[in-house]
Write a protein that binds this DNA or RNA. Structure first.
Length: 446
DNA sequence: ACACTAACCTATTCACGAT
DNA sequence: ATCGTGAATAGGTTAGTGT
């Protein structure tokens, strides 16, 4: 996908996280520590994460890659020199192995609750290779760090080999795009069947591309950034969220500055199992502290459909922009054309939502004193929330979202709702079918 | 175009917590 | 002790970045 004219930041091509470009100071610090210990434990990695302002998972990956590079080079060197000792210029002798270094401990085993497992399992059933956006969203849903989500999927794939073991692309082929129509179970008396093309209900069958609209028109923007609903069986909590970027400029991300400061959050209000609330925007201001707690976004009670405010004539998303500058305890609703959408039901599960979605992000405010050798090399300025703030920005511009929505927004939309008028709530089976479709609709396509 | 490397993957093993 | 599963490893591949 083409980057927006205002964006200088390359975007992940759908499934991968944005590539981290390490600063020279960060590189130097990592290499320095690698010389001391190529197998840092969790304590060291977390300290590095704080002091270098790099997520711990990225520290871990860097050491993995660095060990591979070193071993490869050392083997190459030894092959060339025919065993004349260590290759010069290497940070470690070619013979270093893990047992030569004292491990300062593994990460404490993460306890994944049944409700969290349920969410992950349902996601796994739909897509064994979730994209970074999906993993981030799952992290938000479960309260687990994204890196733990990733490891969980790795372990799950290894232990439950499915029909496609050839990798992500094959797996995606096994998940064909569902119909653009979804059947939405709602509370009795509310809209039941909803075509995603409905201007009233831009239900995110994903959605999102702003392509294909003639100038001057205001398409119904619709971008789901993750499976909108994960729902277990009867009695379980249905949780989900979607956001719909505004149309301005045709792209959500950079034409929508407030998005940088927004996060999705999840309802902890009345549990409405089996129901979806639509045209409901819930936006959280950017985190201003170390951790934005989920309860800051609570207390919202879904409104009856007709109670939602009408679109603002001039700028339907003014509220969103305001939300980006609002205090940390504020929430904003914005609906109508170009509005954001959150669908959510359910309640906090096992307190998981009290954990920040980006728990891995290091926080300088609470860091221990950096070691001298590190402090000397580090840039004093840190933007702790930079990555977290770009959360929605990435989602808004993710390729997978655009590609998913293209068929919907480029002419295959019916003029009328073929499903007819409102009807009674769906059966449980239908409901789960819907969930599967909604879920499917956001997975990247090959 | 190419080298480098972050991100991601599989396969395998270790290790923790529940039973 | 056994089992299930989270964490970590080696090593390979993919794809973004810089030259």
């Amino acid at each position: 996908m083409a980057p927006t004219s205002t964006s200088k930041i390359s975007l992940p091509c759908g499934s991968r996280r944005r590539r981290l470009v390490l600063k020279p100071t960060q590189q130097g610090a990592l290499h320095a520590l690698f010389q001391q210990n190529p197998y840092p434990g969790i304590a060291t990695r977390e300290r590095l994460a704080r002091e270098l302002d790099i997520p711990e998972s990225r520290i871990q990956v860097w050491f993995q890659n660095q060990r591979t590079r070193q071993l490869r080079q050392s083997r190459l060197g030894s092959a060339k020199s025919q065993g004349q000792g260590p290759t010069h210029g290497q940070e470690q002798p070619p013979s270093w192995t893990q047992e030569h270094f004292t491990k300062d401990g593994r990460r404490k085993r993460t306890s994944i609750s049944p409700s969290q497992t349920s969410i992950l399992l349902q996601a796994f059933e739909k897509n064994r290779f979730p994209s970074i956006a999906t993993r981030e969203h799952l992290a938000s849903l479960t309260g687990l760090p994204e890196s733990r989500i990733q490891v969980w999927f790795q372990n799950r794939r290894a232990r439950h080999p499915g029909q496609s073991r050839s990798g992500p692309m094959k797996d995606m082929e096994a998940n064909p795009k569902p119909s653009p129509y979804v059947r939405v179970p709602v509370e009795p008396g509310l809209l039941a069947r909803v075509p995603v093309s409905s201007p009233q209900l831009a239900l995110s069958n994903t959605l999102g591309s702003m392509q294909g609209f003639p100038a001057g028109t205001t398409p119904v923007p619709c971008m789901g950034f993750a499976p909108p609903v994960f729902c277990g069986g009867p009695g379980s909590q249905a949780l989900g969220a979607m956001m719909v970027p505004p149309t301005q400029g045709g792209q959500g991300g950079d034409n929508f500055p407030a998005a940088k400061g927004l996060r999705s959050c999840y309802l902890t209000g009345p549990t409405l199992v089996g129901s979806l609330f639509i045209r409901h925007a819930l936006l959280c201001p950017p985190s201003q502290g170390e951790h934005q707690q989920q309860h800051e976004c609570t207390g919202m009670t879904p409104l009856p459909f007709q109670d939602y405010p009408q679109p603002l004539a001039d700028n339907p998303c003014q509220g969103l922009k305001e939300a980006g500058h609002a205090g940390r305890n504020s929430t904003t609703q914005c609906s109508g054309e170009g509005s954001q959408l959150v669908i959510g039901t359910g309640q906090a599960q096992d307190g998981a939502f009290l954990q920040p979605a980006h728990a891995e992000m290091p926080g300088w405010q609470q860091q221990s004193l950096p070691t001298a050798w590190l402090s000397a090399t580090l840039n004093p300025e840190h933007q702790t929330s930079a990555e977290a703030s770009s959360f929605l920005e990435e989602l808004f511009t993710a390729t997978e979202m655009e590609e998913d929505t293209h068929p919907i927004l480029s002419g295959c939309l019916p003029q009328e709702d073929p499903l007819g008028p409102l009807e009674t709530p769906l059966s449980e089976e239908e409901f789960h079918t819907l969930l599967a479709m909604l879920h499917d609709s956001t997975w990247p396509q090959a």
